[in-house]
Design a protein around this nucleic acid. Sequence first.
DNA 1: GTGAAAGCGCTAACAA
DNA 2: TTGTTAGCGCTTTCAC
Lengths: 359, 359
Amino acid sequence: MSDPSFAHRPTLEAVAARAGVSRATASRVVNGSEGVRAPLAERVRRAVEELGYVPNQAARALVTRRNDAIAVVVAEPETRFFADPFFAQQVRGISKELTAHDNQLVLLLTEGAADHERVGRYLGGGHVDGALIFSLHDDDTLPALARRAGVPTVIGGRPDWSDSDTLYVDCDNRGGAREAVHHLLDLGRRRIGHIAGPLDQTSSVDRLDGFRDALPGVDPRLIVEGDFTPDGGARAMARLLDDFPDLDGVFAASDVMASGALRMLRNRGVRVPEDVAVVGFDDIVSVADWTDPPLTTIRQDIEEMGRMMARLLLRRIEAGAGPGAGPVSGGSAGGSAQAGGLALSSIVTRTQLVVRASA
Amino acid sequence: MSDPSFAHRPTLEAVAARAGVSRATASRVVNGSEGVRAPLAERVRRAVEELGYVPNQAARALVTRRNDAIAVVVAEPETRFFADPFFAQQVRGISKELTAHDNQLVLLLTEGAADHERVGRYLGGGHVDGALIFSLHDDDTLPALARRAGVPTVIGGRPDWSDSDTLYVDCDNRGGAREAVHHLLDLGRRRIGHIAGPLDQTSSVDRLDGFRDALPGVDPRLIVEGDFTPDGGARAMARLLDDFPDLDGVFAASDVMASGALRMLRNRGVRVPEDVAVVGFDDIVSVADWTDPPLTTIRQDIEEMGRMMARLLLRRIEAGAGPGAGPVSGGSAGGSAQAGGLALSSIVTRTQLVVRASA
DNA sequence: GTGAAAGCGCTAACAA
DNA sequence: TTGTTAGCGCTTTCAC
């Protein structure tokens, strides 16, 4: 409470005094405004240096109404965030981009609906200039919350609704899935199963759709729902094996599930890729490169997607209004918002087949 | 910039007006101070409700000099943070504890020394009330930085120096390692190797010390340094196998390295635990429970350690001065700081042997 | 180009 | 118990 060093932190006033200028001029120099004559500016800079002056963010935020901080909101049902390397990588990308723009990352982990109110309050409290939300499940109220709080938002992963000013970043799940199956087909595989993710997430649904695209009219029993865990992948694999002794290919909707599947295959004495070829999704290197055999998979540039989310949000903030951050503008179609003359729109990134040994 | 909903956010003034009281009274009610008569308080609360008032944090922070925000600073050399489930779990614990005390978690990821200056500036800028730092390596300048910035700090993992007011939270690495080796000895193993972590981290050194405690005078070639990755674990395992054909036990300084070791053992056709028994460290369930065979390991309660770090920091902040947050008080010995009459001291948690199938 | 002055929204003495 | 009054440290018109 009575921390001396905190108390003695120099103010702009002190800098101005030392440089022999007004506070206004000192402020201009500190903020890099034009129109301060060089010698004066130099004196101010020296004073800043000597005093070790650092602007007080609270004071600045009070007047500028900008915090230079972005919230990353994560619903963490079932402990999944972080357990899954996917998010970790995305956060890295976000962090890098935010840092490059002198913004801070405020992490908001929620353990369940009980925390949502708190998050809403926080978002509404003007602590942050915007929010990045990972919408894991269909029933997620978080995006709605942010909108109500009037905070510009970008969502990670395609949400299950679609309106003109909801911005999101996702990869081409459907196209990637198609590519995975085509690879198996090219390998001559004819009995191909799919280990799907939880179907209350759009990414799972989209990948399933891609699977079906490549295999129209496929036997529904060839599709088994997993839960994005190795365990779930293993169980699903067992089921496929039981139902289809002639199975010769599997497309798993995530590397993590694929790793479980490989394990089950090994337990059953099934050779990969000789007997059954396996393709995953994500290309999380720490997983895909370490399975036995190494996993052929569909790569999405997760870190880059994180950067894109941050960039998009920053632009939206710059542009002024966000969704719910004012009267809904409405009008333009699916996933793009008009703002300040600049069209901000959702981003869907490409995927890429990475061939290793499992298929 | 001209966001309507942001602009129209009601102020305390508005609440006061609507409730027919002064700003001061409104403030008291909002902050839960005693001594406001019930009916008045009720009117204020109603006004808050009707207007959807949320206090402006910047304004509040400006006067209270409190941000109710804590920085979690992570050096991320070699992309290790997050890649390692260890940190993820710790962050969860921190987040929970902080949330429980209405504090926010600001995540500061650093990619190298270049970022340190930025972090220093941030810490010095009064954005946060304290910092939690993960001191991964001996040469880490982060803690010194925080100290210079005058920000109360708690370190994750025992730092390699020790002074009276450096607070940290760690597990009993040495004791745990000893327990691991004793377990192997109890199993009748006589030729036991150690896959150590990078020896520029105290946790690795401490675990190695524990190994030596249990096996005094052990052949130095039985100790191979790894890097906390599966790959490193595998390489170290290969080396041990090459050097000691009669090896019958291994203690790896982390589960992740142990998983790599198990993999190498399988490749070489060595049976676990029949031929070689393996014990890991950490008990990261997603790893230990999923190796083949499941890993016997030394459990540390990682999430709880995160909570403890947060709790300790909050108490230190409460108490007033922190390390470097004023003249160093000096005096009391090793790892405890006297503050506000309350002795704050570093915490070393117990470990526990978890027996699965690998040993 | 520079300075003076008016707040941003809030809390905390101090009076009443 | 309640209201009045100073600021917290900064940015930003608006004069000069």
